[in-house]
Design a protein around this nucleic acid. Structure first.
Length: 562
RNA sequence: GCCCUCGUAGCUCAGCGGAUAGAGCACCGGCCUCCGGAGCCGGGUGCGCAGGUUCGAGUCCUGCCGGGGGCGCCA
């Protein structure tokens, strides 16, 4: 059988689950066939039709805008085309189809029998935590994700934690969708900032104020008390950055962020990669000297001005080092794709980086730069601007100590990376009840609680194929199944759109559906017939699997009790 | 001045170009003989403004207004 439109044309998500067809794909193929029956043939440049889950149950279990999208190109009224499409569809209906309705301007709404949800339950349980909601839209592409990369001149602030959670969750989501992911932290361990840090350390050791452009934070004095090396700014700076990097590593690990590689800028410079990079750029005629410095002719590649690569002092600029680093990513280690996660305060360097990467002969599409908006903090009703040099920022460590690693992860993944967020420290600290992490973890603890009671009472879960899932007819049961069925789509969309916070939204919805089910549908109460209890036990198991996957993708723990 | 980004309920935020825009918190009122009440149910307010594209715009485009960020031989 021929399908006139590519599967990708139908689906926002391109899902092909574990080698089996998603229900969305089954429907898409049916509708494609029906379109052929209506005389609608494939054609390039046509708007894309979708199969989607309507927001409202009254609009069916699934719906398609195919008639709306294709009406014009075949010169018909959308509703008339929809009528014919419905007739065609009923001649060879997809599984579980109950009825079809035409609604609104020409939507085709499909109403299904609950069997499709029972199939979803079987799918979830049979694939389990390892297999459910996996996909292969990455096709094994090697992607390097660089995130945090904060300078080792002081503790991480809350914004670093937000963007770090994003980078890590994105890595998890993409890994689940078929990418080979490499997590990396770029360590800025050279240059003037390290000398300034060293000078600050030495000043503190002498009991003096730090220089005007130095680092004021109390941690500098603390480090100075442990420094026994020579009175040399470079040595003191290396000591300080090393110690700070250790603590940064520990902080990130405490919220589940572990890197494949910590990449040192010093090693880049020592390897001669900067010279090789400049030589490559020079071959392309994109480098010139002026005032004793080496410049990149970035204006010819869309930047607003030319940029210095090597200062007249002989020091390499940040851009010079970063370009050598990106040359290494693309041309030496040959990653197919690179995703850089920066804070919005560094967005000014993006055009020159993009220009520089293009100057290296790398296709611009292979580099994605994601900018995390600033996190502002409210404390005592006042907002505070954070500055590392002034030492008045809120440390990520302090926040983790206050609210715990799980709450830190979940809060940071509640909103999109593009959303500048405000964190009210008083609320988050004082009132744990307002913390959404309890809501989702409580759902998981309740699942585990049911399992414990099951064991205590000696109840055995019968093999799934011997259980009649048709017993699941309660609205709460069906609502929960609908949520479980959404996870694969959600994960794919999160990976495709680089938006791991979608998983957070799903987790909260799943938890809500489970709490409702738990309240209205006792599983092991004496009043529940055995057949129903068995079906509900499997529904609980499917909930455990899917919620566990969601929480793991977010890096939030799934407690069995609280 | 130029560039980037954001503007959705009192607050914090969801919302892959779809139909009557949703949660949590806060406020008010209900619900525990059952497997955990950190839960469930009910109650009301909103897409900054103006154009445009589209069968259809909170979502895409343009302009304006407002907030944040950036415009170094700092990183």
């Amino acid at each position: 059988m021929l399908y006139p439109l590519s599967y990708e044309g139908w689906c926002s998500n391109h899902t092909i689950l574990g080698g089996t067809m998603s229900f969305r794909e089954v429907l898409a193929r049916s509708i494609s066939s029906a379109l052929v029956g209506c005389g609608v043939l494939p054609e390039d440049g046509r708007p894309t039709a979708h199969v989607e889950r309507p927001a409202r149950l009254e609009h069916g279990d699934w719906s398609t805008n195919a008639a709306l999208v294709h009406a014009r190109s075949v010169g018909r009224q959308p509703r008339a085309l929809a009528e014919q499409l419905a007739e065609q569809l009923l001649m060879d209906p997809p599984p579980h189809l109950d009825r079809v309705e035409i609604a609104g301007p020409g939507f085709l709404n499909l109403y299904l029998k609950p069997g499709w949800l029972y199939d979803a339950l079987v799918e979830t349980v049979s694939q389990g935590v390892a297999g459910y909601a996996t996909a292969d839209i990455g096709h094994g592409e090697r992607v390097q994700i660089e995130f945090v990369s904060a300078n080792p001149t002081g503790p991480l602030h809350v914004g670093n934690g937000w963007w770090g959670s994003y980078g890590d969750a994105l890595a998890r989501v993409m890994a689940r969708c078929g990418w080979q992911v490499h997590r990396e932290y770029y360590v800025n361990d050279t240059g003037g900032q390290v000398r300034r840090l060293g000078a600050s350390l030495l000043a503190r050791r002498r009991g003096e104020e730090v220089p005007e452009d130095g680092y004021q934070g109390a941690y500098v004095a603390e480090l100075a008390s442990h420094y026994e090396g020579p009175d040399d700014v470079d040595a003191a700076g290396r000591f300080a950055t090393g110690r700070i990097l250790d603590s940064i590593r520990a902080t990130l690990a405490s919220i589940g962020i572990v890197y494949d590689e910590w990449y040192s800028q010093a090693s880049v410079e020592e390897s001669g990669a900067v010279e090789e990079t400049i030589a490559l750029l020079a071959e392309r005629g994109l480098v010139y000297e002026d005032d004793g410095a080496v410049w990149l002719r970035s204006t010819s590649l869309g930047d607003q001005r030319d940029r210095v690569l090597v200062k007249s002092s002989g020091d390499v600029t940040y851009l010079g080092g970063d370009l050598a680093y990106h040359r290494d990513k693309f041309l030496v280690r040959k990653f197919d794709r690179v995703i850089d996660v920066f804070g919005a305060d560094h967005h000014g360097q993006v055009p020159s980086l993009l220009a520089g990467v293009e100057a290296l002969g790398v296709d611009r599409d292979r580099l994605e730069v994601k900018l995390g908006q600033m996190v502002s903090l409210l404390e005592g009703g006042k907002s505070g601007a954070m500055s590392k040099r002034a030492g008045n920022f809120v440390a990520l460590d302090d926040l983790i100590a206050d609210i715990g690693p799980d709450a830190t992860r979940l809060l940071s993944l509640m909103s999109s990376l593009d959303q500048a967020s405000t964190l009210d420290l008083d609320v988050v600290r004082s009132s744990s009840m307002e913390n959404p992490v309890y809501y989702v973890q409580y759902a998981h603890a309740r699942i585990a609680s049911i399992e414990r009671v099951m064991v205590e009472r000696g109840v055995e879960r019968q093999p799934l194929d011997s259980v009649d899932l048709g017993a699941l007819v309660h609205d709460r049961e069906l609502e929960l199944l609908r949520r479980i069925e959404e996870l694969p789509d959600t994960v794919v969309e999160a990976a495709r759109d680089r938006a791991p916070h979608r998983v957070t939204t799903w987790v909260r919805n799943l938890a809500g559906a489970f709490h409702g089910f738990y309240h209205d549908c006792p599983v092991l109460a004496p009043s529940v017939p055995t057949e129903l209890a068995q079906a509900r036990l499997w529904l609980v198991e499917a909930s455990r699997i899917s919620l566990g996957i969601g929480l793991d993708l977010l890096g939030v723990s799934a407690p069995r009790e609280m």
